[in-house]
Design a protein around this nucleic acid. Structure first.
Lengths: 195, 195
DNA sequence: TCGATAACTGAGACGAGGTTAACAAACGAT
DNA sequence: ATCGTTTGTTAACCTCGTCTCAGTTATCGA
Protein backbone atom coordinates (compact mmCIF):
# COMPACT_ATOMS: atom_id res chain seq x y z
CA UNK A 1 0.00 0.00 0.00
CA UNK A 2 1.53 3.15 -0.94
CA UNK A 3 0.33 6.48 -2.13
CA UNK A 4 -2.79 8.23 -3.26
CA UNK A 5 -2.91 6.23 -6.49
CA UNK A 6 -5.94 4.16 -5.63
CA UNK A 7 -9.29 5.78 -6.38
CA UNK A 8 -10.45 5.12 -2.86
CA UNK A 9 -9.37 8.09 -0.79
CA UNK A 10 -10.54 11.51 -1.97
CA UNK A 11 -7.28 12.98 -0.66
CA UNK A 12 -9.07 16.27 -0.33
CA UNK A 13 -6.63 18.01 -2.62
CA UNK A 14 -7.62 15.93 -5.63
CA UNK A 15 -11.28 16.64 -5.00
CA UNK A 16 -10.54 20.30 -4.53
CA UNK A 17 -8.81 20.46 -7.90
CA UNK A 18 -11.67 18.65 -9.57
CA UNK A 19 -14.19 21.12 -8.22
CA UNK A 20 -12.24 24.18 -9.30
CA UNK A 21 -11.57 22.61 -12.69
CA UNK A 22 -15.26 21.83 -13.17
CA UNK A 23 -16.09 25.51 -12.81
CA UNK A 24 -13.47 26.59 -15.32
CA UNK A 25 -14.26 23.82 -17.81
CA UNK A 26 -17.95 24.67 -17.65
CA UNK A 27 -17.20 28.31 -18.44
CA UNK A 28 -14.65 27.97 -21.22
CA UNK A 29 -14.61 24.31 -22.20
CA UNK A 30 -11.89 21.74 -21.59
CA UNK A 31 -9.63 23.01 -24.36
CA UNK A 32 -10.28 26.59 -23.39
CA UNK A 33 -8.61 26.13 -20.01
CA UNK A 34 -4.85 25.70 -19.85
CA UNK A 35 -2.79 23.99 -17.17
CA UNK A 36 -1.57 27.43 -16.31
CA UNK A 37 -5.14 28.72 -15.79
CA UNK A 38 -5.88 25.75 -13.61
CA UNK A 39 -2.86 26.41 -11.42
CA UNK A 40 -3.71 30.08 -11.15
CA UNK A 41 -7.22 29.25 -9.98
CA UNK A 42 -5.74 26.95 -7.34
CA UNK A 43 -3.21 29.53 -6.24
CA UNK A 44 -0.30 27.42 -7.47
CA UNK A 45 1.78 26.98 -10.58
CA UNK A 46 0.47 24.92 -13.44
CA UNK A 47 2.94 22.11 -12.95
CA UNK A 48 1.62 21.39 -9.47
CA UNK A 49 -1.27 19.57 -11.10
CA UNK A 50 0.97 16.68 -12.05
CA UNK A 51 1.47 15.69 -8.44
CA UNK A 52 -2.20 14.78 -8.33
CA UNK A 53 -3.11 13.66 -11.85
CA UNK A 54 -1.12 11.92 -14.52
CA UNK A 55 -2.32 14.33 -17.18
CA UNK A 56 -4.91 16.93 -17.98
CA UNK A 57 -6.98 14.22 -19.65
CA UNK A 58 -6.81 12.10 -16.51
CA UNK A 59 -8.25 15.00 -14.52
CA UNK A 60 -11.20 15.23 -16.89
CA UNK A 61 -11.57 11.46 -16.72
CA UNK A 62 -11.70 11.44 -12.94
CA UNK A 63 -14.29 14.21 -13.01
CA UNK A 64 -16.65 12.58 -15.48
CA UNK A 65 -16.34 9.04 -14.18
CA UNK A 66 -17.10 10.34 -10.72
CA UNK A 67 -20.31 12.12 -11.65
CA UNK A 68 -21.49 9.21 -13.79
CA UNK A 69 -21.02 6.92 -10.82
CA UNK A 70 -22.79 9.26 -8.46
CA UNK A 71 -25.75 9.72 -10.80
CA UNK A 72 -26.13 5.98 -11.26
CA UNK A 73 -25.64 4.77 -7.71
CA UNK A 74 -27.90 7.34 -6.10
CA UNK A 75 -30.48 6.86 -8.86
CA UNK A 76 -30.38 3.10 -8.34
CA UNK A 77 -30.77 3.56 -4.60
CA UNK A 78 -33.73 5.89 -4.85
CA UNK A 79 -35.48 3.75 -7.43
CA UNK A 80 -35.08 0.67 -5.26
CA UNK A 81 -36.37 2.51 -2.21
CA UNK A 82 -39.50 3.55 -4.12
CA UNK A 83 -40.08 0.20 -5.80
CA UNK A 84 -42.73 -0.99 -3.39
CA UNK A 85 -44.87 2.05 -3.86
CA UNK A 86 -45.44 1.43 -7.53
CA UNK A 87 -44.04 2.58 -10.90
CA UNK A 88 -45.31 6.14 -10.67
CA UNK A 89 -43.41 6.70 -7.45
CA UNK A 90 -40.24 5.21 -8.94
CA UNK A 91 -40.45 7.55 -11.88
CA UNK A 92 -41.12 10.50 -9.59
CA UNK A 93 -38.06 9.58 -7.54
CA UNK A 94 -35.83 9.44 -10.60
CA UNK A 95 -37.11 12.76 -11.86
CA UNK A 96 -36.63 14.40 -8.47
CA UNK A 97 -33.11 13.04 -8.18
CA UNK A 98 -32.00 14.17 -11.61
CA UNK A 99 -33.49 17.63 -11.12
CA UNK A 100 -31.81 17.94 -7.74
CA UNK A 101 -28.46 16.90 -9.17
CA UNK A 102 -28.67 19.24 -12.15
CA UNK A 103 -29.58 22.21 -9.97
CA UNK A 104 -26.85 21.42 -7.43
CA UNK A 105 -24.04 20.72 -9.90
CA UNK A 106 -24.68 22.78 -13.01
CA UNK A 107 -20.98 22.93 -13.86
CA UNK A 108 -20.59 19.16 -13.84
CA UNK A 109 -23.64 18.74 -16.03
CA UNK A 110 -22.28 21.25 -18.51
CA UNK A 111 -18.89 19.57 -18.71
CA UNK A 112 -20.34 16.11 -19.11
CA UNK A 113 -22.52 17.26 -21.97
CA UNK A 114 -19.86 19.20 -23.80
CA UNK A 115 -16.49 17.62 -23.18
CA UNK A 116 -17.24 13.92 -23.25
CA UNK A 117 -15.51 13.80 -26.61
CA UNK A 118 -12.23 15.01 -25.08
CA UNK A 119 -12.00 11.93 -22.93
CA UNK A 120 -9.44 9.18 -23.48
CA UNK A 121 -10.73 6.06 -25.18
CA UNK A 122 -10.75 4.11 -21.96
CA UNK A 123 -12.42 6.73 -19.80
CA UNK A 124 -15.00 7.36 -22.45
CA UNK A 125 -15.92 3.69 -22.48
CA UNK A 126 -16.27 3.70 -18.71
CA UNK A 127 -18.48 6.76 -18.72
CA UNK A 128 -20.61 5.42 -21.55
CA UNK A 129 -21.11 2.16 -19.70
CA UNK A 130 -22.25 3.96 -16.57
CA UNK A 131 -24.52 6.26 -18.55
CA UNK A 132 -26.07 3.32 -20.33
CA UNK A 133 -26.96 1.69 -17.04
CA UNK A 134 -28.45 4.94 -15.80
CA UNK A 135 -30.56 5.22 -18.92
CA UNK A 136 -31.78 1.64 -18.40
CA UNK A 137 -33.04 2.68 -14.99
CA UNK A 138 -35.10 5.35 -16.67
CA UNK A 139 -36.30 3.22 -19.55
CA UNK A 140 -37.67 0.62 -17.15
CA UNK A 141 -39.36 3.25 -15.01
CA UNK A 142 -40.90 5.08 -17.96
CA UNK A 143 -42.13 1.87 -19.59
CA UNK A 144 -43.75 0.72 -16.37
CA UNK A 145 -45.27 4.06 -15.48
CA UNK A 146 -46.71 5.22 -18.78
CA UNK A 147 -46.95 1.99 -20.74
CA UNK A 148 -44.71 2.91 -23.61
CA UNK A 149 -42.68 0.47 -25.67
CA UNK A 150 -38.94 0.45 -25.11
CA UNK A 151 -37.93 2.54 -28.10
CA UNK A 152 -40.32 5.35 -27.23
CA UNK A 153 -39.42 5.19 -23.56
CA UNK A 154 -35.75 5.45 -24.41
CA UNK A 155 -36.02 8.44 -26.68
CA UNK A 156 -38.38 10.09 -24.22
CA UNK A 157 -35.87 9.59 -21.42
CA UNK A 158 -33.12 11.19 -23.50
CA UNK A 159 -35.41 14.10 -24.30
CA UNK A 160 -36.14 14.66 -20.62
CA UNK A 161 -32.42 14.53 -19.82
CA UNK A 162 -31.93 17.23 -22.38
CA UNK A 163 -34.64 19.29 -20.77
CA UNK A 164 -33.38 18.97 -17.21
CA UNK A 165 -29.73 19.31 -18.20
CA UNK A 166 -30.42 22.58 -19.95
CA UNK A 167 -30.93 24.39 -16.64
CA UNK A 168 -27.31 25.54 -16.36
CA UNK A 169 -27.96 27.75 -19.38
CA UNK A 170 -31.11 29.41 -18.13
CA UNK A 171 -31.22 29.36 -14.33
CA UNK A 172 -33.53 32.21 -13.61
CA UNK A 173 -36.43 31.63 -11.23
CA UNK A 174 -34.83 30.57 -7.94
CA UNK A 175 -33.96 27.04 -7.05
CA UNK A 176 -37.18 25.71 -5.52
CA UNK A 177 -39.39 27.31 -8.12
CA UNK A 178 -37.16 25.96 -10.88
CA UNK A 179 -37.14 22.47 -9.38
CA UNK A 180 -40.91 22.42 -9.18
CA UNK A 181 -41.38 23.59 -12.71
CA UNK A 182 -38.88 21.11 -14.12
CA UNK A 183 -40.50 18.23 -12.31
CA UNK A 184 -43.97 19.16 -13.52
CA UNK A 185 -42.72 19.56 -17.09
CA UNK A 186 -40.84 16.26 -16.97
CA UNK A 187 -43.87 14.35 -15.75
CA UNK A 188 -46.11 15.91 -18.34
CA UNK A 189 -43.66 15.27 -21.15
CA UNK A 190 -43.12 11.63 -20.23
CA UNK A 191 -46.85 10.94 -20.05
CA UNK A 192 -47.19 12.32 -23.57
CA UNK A 193 -44.50 10.16 -25.09
CA UNK A 194 -46.54 7.28 -26.49
CA UNK A 195 -48.19 7.62 -29.86
CA UNK B 1 -17.30 46.74 -55.53
CA UNK B 2 -14.75 44.12 -54.98
CA UNK B 3 -14.42 40.75 -53.37
CA UNK B 4 -16.37 38.17 -51.42
CA UNK B 5 -16.10 40.14 -48.22
CA UNK B 6 -19.72 41.14 -48.02
CA UNK B 7 -21.95 38.62 -46.31
CA UNK B 8 -24.35 38.71 -49.20
CA UNK B 9 -23.25 36.08 -51.71
CA UNK B 10 -22.99 32.49 -50.50
CA UNK B 11 -20.22 31.87 -53.07
CA UNK B 12 -21.06 28.16 -52.94
CA UNK B 13 -17.55 27.23 -51.88
CA UNK B 14 -17.93 29.07 -48.58
CA UNK B 15 -21.20 27.31 -47.89
CA UNK B 16 -19.65 23.98 -48.81
CA UNK B 17 -16.84 24.49 -46.31
CA UNK B 18 -19.31 25.49 -43.61
CA UNK B 19 -21.33 22.33 -44.12
CA UNK B 20 -18.34 20.02 -43.99
CA UNK B 21 -16.95 21.87 -41.00
CA UNK B 22 -20.26 21.59 -39.16
CA UNK B 23 -20.09 17.83 -39.38
CA UNK B 24 -16.55 17.67 -38.06
CA UNK B 25 -17.14 20.24 -35.31
CA UNK B 26 -20.22 18.34 -34.16
CA UNK B 27 -18.21 15.13 -33.88
CA UNK B 28 -15.06 16.35 -32.21
CA UNK B 29 -15.69 19.91 -31.11
CA UNK B 30 -14.25 23.11 -32.56
CA UNK B 31 -10.87 22.70 -30.85
CA UNK B 32 -10.79 19.02 -31.69
CA UNK B 33 -10.67 19.74 -35.42
CA UNK B 34 -7.50 21.21 -36.91
CA UNK B 35 -7.14 23.29 -40.04
CA UNK B 36 -5.39 20.28 -41.52
CA UNK B 37 -8.39 18.02 -40.77
CA UNK B 38 -10.67 20.56 -42.35
CA UNK B 39 -8.62 20.67 -45.53
CA UNK B 40 -8.43 16.90 -45.72
CA UNK B 41 -12.21 16.66 -45.48
CA UNK B 42 -12.49 19.15 -48.35
CA UNK B 43 -9.90 17.37 -50.45
CA UNK B 44 -7.48 20.29 -50.22
CA UNK B 45 -4.65 21.44 -48.01
CA UNK B 46 -5.39 23.14 -44.73
CA UNK B 47 -4.17 26.54 -45.82
CA UNK B 48 -6.73 26.68 -48.64
CA UNK B 49 -9.26 27.68 -46.01
CA UNK B 50 -7.76 31.14 -45.79
CA UNK B 51 -8.92 32.00 -49.29
CA UNK B 52 -12.48 31.86 -47.97
CA UNK B 53 -12.29 32.83 -44.32
CA UNK B 54 -10.04 35.23 -42.46
CA UNK B 55 -9.45 32.71 -39.69
CA UNK B 56 -10.71 29.51 -38.16
CA UNK B 57 -12.71 31.62 -35.71
CA UNK B 58 -14.32 33.51 -38.56
CA UNK B 59 -15.50 30.23 -40.05
CA UNK B 60 -17.20 29.28 -36.80
CA UNK B 61 -18.66 32.77 -36.61
CA UNK B 62 -20.17 32.54 -40.09
CA UNK B 63 -21.64 29.16 -39.23
CA UNK B 64 -23.30 30.18 -35.99
CA UNK B 65 -24.53 33.58 -37.12
CA UNK B 66 -26.08 31.93 -40.14
CA UNK B 67 -28.08 29.36 -38.20
CA UNK B 68 -29.17 31.91 -35.63
CA UNK B 69 -30.49 34.07 -38.43
CA UNK B 70 -32.28 31.20 -40.10
CA UNK B 71 -33.90 30.05 -36.87
CA UNK B 72 -35.13 33.53 -36.09
CA UNK B 73 -36.34 34.63 -39.51
CA UNK B 74 -38.19 31.45 -40.31
CA UNK B 75 -39.62 31.32 -36.79
CA UNK B 76 -40.79 34.89 -37.10
CA UNK B 77 -42.38 34.16 -40.44
CA UNK B 78 -44.26 31.10 -39.27
CA UNK B 79 -45.44 32.79 -36.09
CA UNK B 80 -46.77 35.73 -38.11
CA UNK B 81 -48.51 33.42 -40.53
CA UNK B 82 -50.29 31.64 -37.68
CA UNK B 83 -51.14 34.76 -35.70
CA UNK B 84 -54.72 35.02 -36.92
CA UNK B 85 -55.56 31.52 -35.85
CA UNK B 86 -54.88 32.14 -32.20
CA UNK B 87 -52.08 31.65 -29.66
CA UNK B 88 -52.30 27.85 -29.62
CA UNK B 89 -51.64 27.69 -33.33
CA UNK B 90 -48.72 30.11 -33.03
CA UNK B 91 -47.15 27.96 -30.35
CA UNK B 92 -47.72 24.83 -32.40
CA UNK B 93 -46.06 26.47 -35.38
CA UNK B 94 -42.98 27.41 -33.35
CA UNK B 95 -42.69 23.93 -31.90
CA UNK B 96 -43.06 22.32 -35.31
CA UNK B 97 -40.44 24.61 -36.79
CA UNK B 98 -37.87 24.03 -34.08
CA UNK B 99 -38.38 20.27 -34.19
CA UNK B 100 -38.06 20.27 -37.95
CA UNK B 101 -34.85 22.31 -37.80
CA UNK B 102 -33.28 20.16 -35.08
CA UNK B 103 -34.02 16.95 -36.93
CA UNK B 104 -32.78 18.33 -40.24
CA UNK B 105 -29.58 19.95 -38.94
CA UNK B 106 -28.39 17.97 -35.92
CA UNK B 107 -24.77 18.94 -36.51
CA UNK B 108 -25.52 22.66 -36.46
CA UNK B 109 -27.54 22.29 -33.28
CA UNK B 110 -24.71 20.43 -31.60
CA UNK B 111 -22.12 23.02 -32.56
CA UNK B 112 -24.25 25.93 -31.48
CA UNK B 113 -24.80 24.37 -28.09
CA UNK B 114 -21.23 23.38 -27.46
CA UNK B 115 -18.92 25.83 -29.17
CA UNK B 116 -20.61 29.15 -28.64
CA UNK B 117 -17.88 29.95 -26.13
CA UNK B 118 -15.19 29.65 -28.81
CA UNK B 119 -16.65 32.56 -30.73
CA UNK B 120 -14.96 35.94 -30.99
CA UNK B 121 -16.37 38.65 -28.77
CA UNK B 122 -18.13 40.33 -31.66
CA UNK B 123 -19.65 37.23 -33.19
CA UNK B 124 -20.80 36.04 -29.82
CA UNK B 125 -22.66 39.28 -29.28
CA UNK B 126 -24.33 38.98 -32.64
CA UNK B 127 -25.41 35.40 -32.02
CA UNK B 128 -26.65 36.23 -28.53
CA UNK B 129 -28.70 39.10 -29.88
CA UNK B 130 -30.36 36.87 -32.48
CA UNK B 131 -30.97 34.14 -29.94
CA UNK B 132 -32.53 36.61 -27.55
CA UNK B 133 -34.99 37.72 -30.19
CA UNK B 134 -35.83 34.12 -30.98
CA UNK B 135 -36.47 33.42 -27.31
CA UNK B 136 -38.76 36.46 -27.16
CA UNK B 137 -40.84 34.93 -29.92
CA UNK B 138 -41.29 31.86 -27.76
CA UNK B 139 -41.89 33.72 -24.51
CA UNK B 140 -44.71 35.67 -26.09
CA UNK B 141 -46.25 32.58 -27.59
CA UNK B 142 -46.02 30.55 -24.40
CA UNK B 143 -47.41 33.35 -22.26
CA UNK B 144 -50.35 33.82 -24.58
CA UNK B 145 -51.09 30.13 -25.03
CA UNK B 146 -50.79 28.80 -21.51
CA UNK B 147 -51.22 31.93 -19.41
CA UNK B 148 -47.90 31.84 -17.63
CA UNK B 149 -46.05 34.88 -16.32
CA UNK B 150 -42.96 35.93 -18.22
CA UNK B 151 -40.37 34.37 -15.95
CA UNK B 152 -42.00 30.97 -16.03
CA UNK B 153 -42.63 31.17 -19.75
CA UNK B 154 -38.98 32.03 -20.33
CA UNK B 155 -37.52 29.20 -18.32
CA UNK B 156 -40.06 26.80 -19.81
CA UNK B 157 -39.00 27.86 -23.30
CA UNK B 158 -35.35 27.22 -22.46
CA UNK B 159 -36.25 23.83 -21.05
CA UNK B 160 -38.10 22.88 -24.22
CA UNK B 161 -35.14 24.03 -26.33
CA UNK B 162 -32.99 21.71 -24.26
CA UNK B 163 -35.38 18.88 -24.89
CA UNK B 164 -35.68 19.35 -28.64
CA UNK B 165 -31.99 20.12 -29.07
CA UNK B 166 -31.03 16.89 -27.39
CA UNK B 167 -32.17 14.84 -30.38
CA UNK B 168 -28.73 14.76 -32.02
CA UNK B 169 -27.58 12.61 -29.10
CA UNK B 170 -30.36 10.07 -29.21
CA UNK B 171 -31.85 9.88 -32.70
CA UNK B 172 -33.36 6.48 -32.67
CA UNK B 173 -36.96 6.06 -33.79
CA UNK B 174 -37.07 7.32 -37.37
CA UNK B 175 -37.62 10.90 -38.31
CA UNK B 176 -41.40 11.18 -38.47
CA UNK B 177 -41.96 9.17 -35.33
CA UNK B 178 -39.35 11.23 -33.53
CA UNK B 179 -40.88 14.49 -34.72
CA UNK B 180 -44.29 13.46 -33.52
CA UNK B 181 -43.08 12.41 -30.12
CA UNK B 182 -41.06 15.56 -29.61
CA UNK B 183 -44.01 17.75 -30.54
CA UNK B 184 -46.35 15.95 -28.17
CA UNK B 185 -43.82 16.13 -25.35
CA UNK B 186 -43.13 19.80 -25.97
CA UNK B 187 -46.81 20.69 -25.88
CA UNK B 188 -47.40 18.70 -22.72
CA UNK B 189 -44.36 20.17 -20.99
CA UNK B 190 -45.28 23.75 -21.85
CA UNK B 191 -48.83 23.34 -20.61
CA UNK B 192 -47.43 22.13 -17.28
CA UNK B 193 -45.12 25.07 -16.74
CA UNK B 194 -47.23 27.29 -14.53
CA UNK B 195 -47.31 26.69 -10.79
C1' DT C 1 17.39 16.28 15.45
C1' DC C 2 16.43 13.57 11.63
C1' DG C 3 14.21 11.55 7.91
C1' DA C 4 9.97 10.77 5.31
C1' DT C 5 6.20 12.55 2.76
C1' DA C 6 3.21 15.81 0.51
C1' DA C 7 3.00 19.82 -2.09
C1' DC C 8 5.04 23.12 -4.91
C1' DT C 9 8.31 26.03 -8.07
C1' DG C 10 10.87 27.54 -12.22
C1' DA C 11 12.94 26.54 -16.39
C1' DG C 12 12.85 24.34 -20.46
C1' DA C 13 12.02 20.56 -24.04
C1' DC C 14 8.81 19.39 -27.24
C1' DG C 15 5.08 19.16 -30.47
C1' DA C 16 0.76 20.81 -32.41
C1' DG C 17 -1.65 23.91 -34.77
C1' DG C 18 -3.00 28.66 -36.74
C1' DT C 19 -1.31 31.89 -39.82
C1' DT C 20 1.37 34.01 -43.54
C1' DA C 21 4.02 34.40 -47.81
C1' DA C 22 5.50 33.33 -52.36
C1' DC C 23 4.29 30.91 -56.21
C1' DA C 24 1.16 28.18 -59.71
C1' DA C 25 -2.75 26.65 -62.44
C1' DA C 26 -7.39 27.22 -64.39
C1' DC C 27 -10.53 30.21 -66.69
C1' DG C 28 -13.51 33.76 -68.54
C1' DA C 29 -13.67 38.43 -70.56
C1' DT C 30 -11.79 42.17 -73.21
C1' DA D 1 -2.79 36.88 -76.32
C1' DT D 2 -3.29 38.85 -71.96
C1' DC D 3 -5.10 40.36 -67.73
C1' DG D 4 -7.52 39.65 -63.50
C1' DT D 5 -9.92 36.60 -60.50
C1' DT D 6 -10.44 32.49 -58.07
C1' DT D 7 -8.63 28.71 -55.94
C1' DG D 8 -5.07 26.08 -54.53
C1' DT D 9 -0.01 24.43 -52.98
C1' DT D 10 4.32 24.14 -50.23
C1' DA D 11 7.17 25.70 -46.83
C1' DA D 12 8.22 28.16 -43.14
C1' DC D 13 7.19 30.85 -38.89
C1' DC D 14 5.71 31.47 -34.39
C1' DT D 15 2.87 31.17 -30.53
C1' DC D 16 0.80 28.40 -27.10
C1' DG D 17 0.07 24.56 -24.22
C1' DT D 18 1.44 20.08 -22.22
C1' DC D 19 4.55 17.70 -19.76
C1' DT D 20 9.28 16.62 -17.44
C1' DC D 21 12.85 17.38 -14.24
C1' DA D 22 15.76 18.84 -10.62
C1' DG D 23 15.52 21.21 -6.65
C1' DT D 24 12.71 23.64 -2.52
C1' DT D 25 9.67 24.29 1.52
C1' DA D 26 6.64 22.66 5.24
C1' DT D 27 4.76 19.39 8.33
C1' DC D 28 4.99 15.61 11.35
C1' DG D 29 6.17 11.40 13.84
C1' DA D 30 10.01 8.87 15.98
Amino acid sequence: MSGPEGASLPTSRRQQIIEVAAGLFAERGFHGVSIYDLGAAMGTSGAALYKHFASKDALLGAMLVDISERLLSEGQQRADAAAEEGPDVVLAALIAWHVEFALTHPALITVQLRDLASLSEEDRKTVRRLQRRYVELWVDAVSAAVGADEAHARSAAHAVFGMINSTPHSALLGRDDMAGQLQRMAHAALHACRS
